[in-house]
Amino acid sequence: MAVSGMLVLTGKGNKMTVLDILSGILLLAGCSLGVIGAIGLIRFPDFYTRMHAAGVTDTLCAGLFFGGLAIQFGLTLASAKLLLIFLFMLFTCPTSSHALAKAARHGGLEPWTKTGSGAAHNMSQEGAKS
């Protein structure tokens, strides 16, 4: 890995400018969203709730994160590329979440309810295959 990495990012910069602080805030916000989404993915009881946690946070998390990085890169080709990646993900992530949810619904996966939680758990792979 190059030693000429971004000094500010690695914490070796001598001065923190407003932009650095802003980028730091964006990065941290993005990352905490990512972790929250992941926790939701682990902790929530069924597919739809997990999808809610993961799918909703995903795009915003990536957006904030890329925004933070783009500030670090400054107005260069790199920021443009970051913007492109973000645009790409902006289109694809919600689309695939939507398609996945739709597929699950068509596949007969029932949403979890407090009373009928058993139904979700019975939803084993054999059931989902139909």
Binding site: L9, R50, A62, S96, S124, Q125
Partner: peptide
Amino acid sequence: PTIYDRILAINLFGTKTVMLITLIAALA
């Protein structure tokens, strides 16, 4: 447990990988 959970997890994993790569790019 369902296959959809796996797909969802893989999707999330993919976006996190993209973020990791951009991070590595920024580091380098």
